[in-house]
Write a protein that binds this DNA or RNA. Structure first.
Lengths: 207, 207
DNA sequence: CCCAGATGTGAACGATGCATACACCGTAGG
DNA sequence: CCTACGGTGTATGCATCGTTCACATCTGGG
């Protein structure tokens, strides 16, 4: 346990300090790619020091992203711990989009980067999110193909988040966004039974 | 009309050449951010020459992105020129996702970059896409709130594209992807009437 | 013909990611 | 106690990048 020492030379816990610095930089300047040197500066340490704890820039970003996934999960859980009705699920969806809009740089780090899949921590964290969505969707719609429906709803919400992030949709007020997300999610869920069981897509409405 | 000259010093049409070079680089190395210098090298020109035609890197990227939007629009139109049934719309959706997977770097340039909205060409191009979606959705589902439904379907498809791009979904085979997209879109469209502004009392399953 | 403006060049600055060699410091073994 | 060692931070250096500026080179209109 490296207790934080008032010492000068050795930082105490640079690993965590780098993470914190990176997060701060991301929050402060939404654009501007995260610079390892800037992180080092903010941590009050030489430019190469972080390399003792992160093999390269990608590793730091992945660590930040992983932390972001965990925070996103918390954020969703806070919106509703165990959603079961469409309304509750919609609230969670709104929370997802809100998270993206409140932490745009972090969200981009989590998703928009090429993300080579060789980051244990990272794939684990995203798998956790994926499983979480599958679970609550499965609980809310028993008898439905949870895999398919959760993929669909995740994609819907994720897409809304990104389009808002890119200014492709009207994000003027949080209420507007929330209404949009809510209505979209409701639309999807109202069709959920259509995805049930062995349903093959061809059962579409030929009206 | 600057005809391509066999001359050395003046390139003939560097602006277009840069665009082409940039596209090639994006297609060849999906990762690795587009480097202005690399573009110049590929165009066989000094590192600073592109600045005569693009004020900065962002401008070049925006131009590439705008071209990408146009190509995406063509690609969608090729999938189906005037979709009206859910099946036809699903085909267009599949084309959208396929485009993203076939041109990942370009697609990222189009969407994943911070994209400050001060690029005329760019906002125009995305507005074109947005309008296109609205049009075909409106045509396929008259009487429905085309604005809301098209936003929803765009977000769904866009989200699917991004999640696939990031390896968060099973993209093992094109068929798998197509099936997933098709089923998701059908699910949404089967609920389309629920989005109708004048609330037709269609069999909304189980409240 | 000839000059003005458009276009391309070269050197240069500051920033970045990263590798390498070195300096510092707490601690375990004698 | 003291010494050697390994974990941690530093200094330096290299290649690349974006961007600027002064300069060179073409080309078209008077």
């Amino acid at each position: 346990m490296p207790r934080p020492r008032p010492n000068t030379y050795h930082h105490g816990d640079l690993r965590a300090a780098c993470l914190r610095a990176a997060r701060e930089l991301l929050e402060e300047d939404g654009s501007a790619a995260l610079s390892l040197r800037a992180v080092a500066r903010r941590a009050g340490v030489s430019a190469t020091a972080p390399y003792r704890h992160y093999s390269d820039r990608e590793a730091l970003v992945s660590a930040v992203a992983a932390e972001g996934y965990r925070e996103l999960a918390e954020h969703l859980a806070r919106a509703h711990p165990a959603p079961s009705t469409p309304d509750e699920l919609a609230a969670v969806a709104v929370a997802y989009v809100r998270f993206a809009l409140e932490h745009p740089a972090l969200f981009r780090a989590m998703f928009a980067e090429p993300c080579d899949p060789t980051s244990e921590e990272r794939v684990a964290a995203t798998e956790a999110i994926s499983a979480y969505v599958r679970t609550i969707v499965g609980a809310a719609f028993p008898g439905v193909d949870a895999e398919a429906l959760s993929t669909t709803v995740w994609a819907l919400v994720h897409g809304l988040a990104f389009l808002h992030l890119d200014g492709k949709l009207d994000s003027s007020s949080p209420e507007t966004v929330a209404a949009q997300v809510t209505s979209a999610v409701h639309a999807l869920f109202s069709a959920a039974p259509a995805l049930s069981g062995t349903a093959r897509g061809t059962a579409g409405p030929t009206a």
